[in-house]
Simulated scan of single mutants.
Amino acid sequence: MAKILELQKKDKYNKERTVGSIEIKNQTETTADLCFFGDINSESLGEWQKYYPEDKAPKDVQDFLDQLEGVSKINVHINSGGGSVFGGIAIYNILKRYDAEITVYVEGLAASIASVIAMAGDKIIIPENAQMMIHKPSSVTWGNADDMRKEADILDGCQKVILNTYMQHTKEGVTAEEIDSLINAETWKNGKEWQEFFDIEVSEKSQATACKSEYFDKYNHLPDKLKEQPQQQINIDDLAERVAEKLKDATQPETPKVPENDVKQKTAEILEDLELI
């Protein structure tokens, strides 16, 4: 049995839109799957910020869990380039509080805060060709020296929380200083390499598709194979055809002229369809 949980969000015109969905797959009466195949958002997203269907925020995860009935096992699948520190920590806490056995599968990539979410698993499985990346949290701030110092203190606090989270899954003998050093260096490793530090299982090669993320340009040591991913290009001819199709009735003499605001809204809808805004 499967249920679809639609994720709703208001657009810039204050109109409710379906921005994605979570498919609740009950493989048995007691098992469900949760997939993180996009970036991680916080609950405080502004309407100006991009929100793709694959992205997840804490409320999405809580809504997913609230739909489950009698589930004692959850399989969490991750292929994510990271995202909001506070959003990811909240998701980790939500999963840890849920009364179920959680198995995490890193399908292709668990980078940045997605690696923290992976630590919510009672069991963590990373294929030999999948990667996990850990690094220092970062942010953007503006202000004077006092503002900068305050932000630095916040980031240092986040790093302590992240370090403590990783330490819940380290192998015996691995020290906090070792993991902190890997965090500071922005470390990318595959499943077999991480097994030296974390209590994880390594499976055979994954068939996961390439991961896409808005956060890749913020990482210092992004692997070449992720840099080489083609970026989506705007096809102006295609866009023009779609605008013309949407507004074709406006070309008829008996049809009143389409108000400018409607033209803008229809164009915005097309761009949203193309995942460009």
Score class of each variant (00 low, 15 high):
N261P: 02
I102E: 00
T103V: 07
I40E: 03
Y52N: 11
T28F: 09
W194M: 03
K160I: 14
K123N: 06
K218S: 14
Q252A: 14
I162V: 12
D217W: 06
E269R: 14
A118K: 04
D122K: 06
K50N: 12
E204D: 09
R17I: 10
A210Q: 13
L7W: 07
I40W: 05
D60W: 05
D33Q: 09
Q159M: 14
T141S: 12
V76M: 03
E196C: 02
D39Q: 06
S84V: 03
D224N: 10
F198V: 01
N26K: 13
E241G: 06
Y105I: 03
N41W: 10
W188C: 11
E228V: 05
T141C: 11
A208T: 07
D122W: 01
L95K: 07
K12D: 15
K150L: 10
Q232S: 04
Q265A: 15
T31C: 04
S139P: 02
I40P: 10
N14M: 11
G70K: 04
F197S: 05
K192V: 04
M133W: 04
D262E: 13
S139E: 05
E245V: 04
A90N: 09
E16P: 04
K192N: 07
V243D: 01
D99V: 02
I125S: 01
V263F: 06
W48N: 08
Q27S: 14
C211E: 09
D156F: 11
D146E: 15
D153H: 13
N184A: 15
E151C: 11
Q168W: 00
K227D: 07
Q195C: 05
E275K: 14
I236C: 00
H77S: 07
Q49S: 12
K212D: 01
T267L: 15
G143P: 03
K160D: 12
G173L: 03
K212Y: 01
E23L: 13
I4D: 03
I125C: 06
S21N: 11
D146H: 11
I270F: 08
V61W: 01
K264F: 09
P58L: 13
N261S: 13
K10D: 09
I179G: 01
D63I: 09
E201M: 07
D217P: 12
E16C: 04
N164D: 15
I4N: 07
Y51Q: 06
Q49M: 09
E151T: 15
A118Q: 00
C211Y: 03
F197L: 03
G83N: 12
V71A: 00
M167P: 00
A152R: 12
E16R: 07
K225F: 07
P127W: 05
E177L: 10
L109T: 02
A2L: 12
K257N: 06
D238L: 14
A210L: 13
R149M: 10
A210C: 11
I4Y: 00
D153Y: 12
E128Y: 02
S44T: 10
T103L: 03
E272A: 10
